[in-house]
Simulated scan of single mutants.
Amino acid sequence: MDYRKFLGKVESAVLPYFGGACVDAPSRRLRVSTPPTPGWWRFEVQGRTATAREPAVPEGLDGLPLVRGHLWGARLVREGAVAETVLLLPDEEPPRFSPVRARRWHDGSLVFEALEFEGEAEGSARRVLEEGRTLAEVKAVPSSLRAAFGYAVLEGASRALGIRFSPAEVRGQVLSVAEGGHPAAEARLRALAIERDAHVRSVEARLVELETQRRREEEAAQLQTELARMRSHPRHVEWQAQGLTRVERVLASAGARMLDSRRLGNQRLEVTFSFMDERFITIVEVGTLQVVDAGICLAGADREVTLESLPSVIREAIRNDVLVITRHA
């Protein structure tokens, strides 16, 4: 008797592996039996399990959405000054500001396809950056290159000042930084630091208010009541059995992806997730997924948001160029 028919059909597929426990095929997500190093691999696929067999030449990129832009580190800067991580770059680091062609893979990630031919603008941008000048005097510079230049100037100022930034926090000002140079970058980063400090002071003032009005004791009593209710309710058993499935589902429905989690005291959970190619750390209540600390500046309105609605709030902040990330790993 041929028992192979009971084991399922075995197929071969060339796919990009970006890391983690899964790999995405055109029509489905597969579990990787033994994770290889990131890169293009020929996988043996049986059921919903993929096993890496050997490195492979990229396949299946033709027909996928094409994205063009200029490199800033490991990010491709495209129209609208959007700086998005591009995966599987060549082992030999491309020159700064290289024009790049990438494809939008089936899971939404950008995967490197090829370097494109340079014009005079890329070389000029590199020289101007090395000499500490601005792009104000350079003509015929594509918008994506101009934005990549601005991000590079901000990066240098960030190292000098010790003020971190995410591309989404400075996207609205990156072109003016390219024109204004280091002083404009410093001004933007200092303003960002002031906004973060203001948020910290707001949180501290709130804590003082809670202390003086004995709200901490009231909140503790409410949490104890909620904990007792949860323990007597079947959903508590479901949470223990299913772990973080609900959190993953809520984030996935909002277009985000959970990266990590950590249980805190007082029935709270620290959730780390990615959204719009940025990383966020949020604290929520376990039972309701109500936000306690959004990890972004919400002017003290964190508790008016749930984990399900938080990604849409972040998207709106990015669109309006008002995003300020307050929690970094």
Rank of each mutant, 00 (worst) to 15 (best):
P183E: 09
A184P: 04
S166W: 13
R188M: 14
L145T: 02
G180H: 03
V177N: 11
A136M: 05
G162Y: 07
A187N: 12
E169R: 02
S158N: 05
E155N: 08
S166F: 05
L192N: 04
Q173P: 10
G180K: 02
G150E: 09
I194A: 13
L161D: 01
A152C: 07
F165H: 08
L154G: 05
I163L: 01
A168F: 02
A187S: 15
A184G: 01
Y151L: 06
Y151H: 01
V170T: 15
A148E: 06
S158E: 06
R171K: 11
A168G: 04
K139F: 15
A191D: 15
A184W: 03
I163W: 01
S158Q: 03
F165W: 02
S166G: 11
F165P: 05
A160W: 08
V170H: 07
G180I: 06
E155T: 11
R171A: 04
E186C: 13
L154P: 11
T134V: 02
G156W: 03
S143A: 12
A184V: 05
A187L: 12
I163V: 10
V153L: 13
G150K: 12
L135M: 05
A178E: 07
T134I: 04
L145W: 02
P167D: 01
A152E: 12
R159Q: 14
R190C: 04
E155I: 05
P183L: 08
A184K: 04
E169T: 02
E169N: 06
A187W: 11
S144N: 12
